[in-house]
């Protein structure tokens, strides 16, 4: 087991290096730091000095890969690639283009993100599984057919509509909850209910439909017939046999996104004004703050790889047939 985890972590290193090189090329080679400076300072009438100044302030004035002006190790370390890209491996995200410590910002803003993402995930899971089980119980009846139609309709509606519609209905017409904002501690709850609710509702369509397929796939298996031949009731067959097997793909599908919950949801957070990592990213994109975008890309890849690892480990926990070797 430990050997397996070690091997997976070793395997992750080349992938992260790949991500790192990719972002480096994207952010520094396709467009030079000069271009970025000009963009940031406004397009017209920028003096070369201003550009140099801007670059120097943010450490973009170094050569990309090789610094012939430096001595010894400095020839390699005193470069943009080393300072800006490789340092990410130490989770040293540096400072944003607007001069804030990115690492600190991330550590502050991940909590609001989690406060929304975790309830959405858990409640969504509960709702979708319950609904899907219900449909599976009534399979091949009108309840099944119309539920599937309902699911398809729900998943055909843009997520934006759920948010805008929900805000309009709940906050503006009914005045039940504040439209947006955030608070610290327990006071935050009243700001969280609506986004969580909308997140859950928005996910019902695709989630339920997917779980229904999984359940129906299991229901047609031989062991279910065996269970029925024992004289078990349909409810026990569904709960003890079908659900337990279908939980394997469901759980592993959930585990892979667990780490990514830290990243938050871009849209929800920005609509509801929640100071999480999602709105952080959006703000950064809108402000064209590349240091933050770069940091988030790297963070996202790390979390994704952790997710893959957790998925494999969770298989061994829920599926007795899988043993890691």
């Amino acid at each position: 087991m430990i050997a397996y985890i070690v091997r997976r972590i070793l395997y992750a290193i080349p992938i992260l290096i790949g991500v790192n090189i990719l972002t480096f090329v994207l952010f520094f080679v396709v467009n030079s730091p000069d271009d970025m400076a000009r963009m940031n300072l406004g397009m017209k009438r920028v003096t070369p000095e201003a550009i140099e100044n801007w670059k120097a302030e943010r450490g973009y004035d170094k050569p990309l890969l090789f610094n012939s002006a430096s001595q010894g190790v400095g020839q390699v370390t005193d470069t943009i690639f080393f300072q800006k890209s490789l340092k990410l491996f130490q989770f040293d995200f540096g400072t944003s283009d607007s001069d804030r410590d990115i690492g600190y910002d991330i550590s502050q803003r991940m909590w609001p993100s989690l406060a929304i993402a975790v309830p959405v995930l858990l409640i969504g899971l509960l709702v979708n599984i319950t609904y899907a089980l219900l449909i599976a119980f009534f399979r091949a009846t009108y309840i099944d057919i119309w539920s599937v139609v309902l699911c398809v309709v729900m998943m055909s509606i843009s997520g934006l509509f759920y948010i805008i519609g929900g805000q309009y209905l709940v906050s503006k017409l009914l005045h039940l909850m504040p439209i947006s904002g955030y608070d610290t501690g327990f006071a935050a709850v009243k700001f969280l209910i609506l986004p969580v609710l909308i997140g859950v509702v928005g996910g019902i369509g695709s989630g339920t439909r997917w779980y229904r397929t999984l359940f129906l796939e299991e229901i047609n298996r031989d062991y279910v017939r065996t269970a029925r031949a024992k004289g078990l009731s349909e409810g026990i067959v569904l709960f003890r046999h079908v659900l337990k097997n279908a939980m394997i793909p469901i759980l592993t599908g959930v585990v892979v996104v667990l780490p990514l919950l830290f990243m938050g949801s871009l849209i929800t957070e920005s609509f509801f004004g929640i100071p999480g990592l999602g709105s952080y990213t959006i703000d950064a994109i809108n402000r064209q703050d590349f240091a933050i975008v770069r940091a988030m890309v790297f963070l996202g890849s790390v979390l994704y790889i952790i997710g893959l690892l957790l998925t494999d480990i969770s298989y061994t926990l829920v599926d007795p047939r899988v043993r890691l070797s």
Binding site: I15, L26, F27, T281, V293
Partner: peptide, 26 residues
């Protein structure tokens, strides 16, 4: 594909489009 997949899609798109914007405005 694991490498490409590991970058969250929105961020990769964001990064690429931002770069395109800079290129286009320059």
């Amino acid at each position: 594909y694991t490498t490409l997949n590991s970058i969250p899609g929105v961020l990769l798109i964001a990064a690429a489009i931002l770069m395109l914007q800079i290129y286009m405005s320059n």
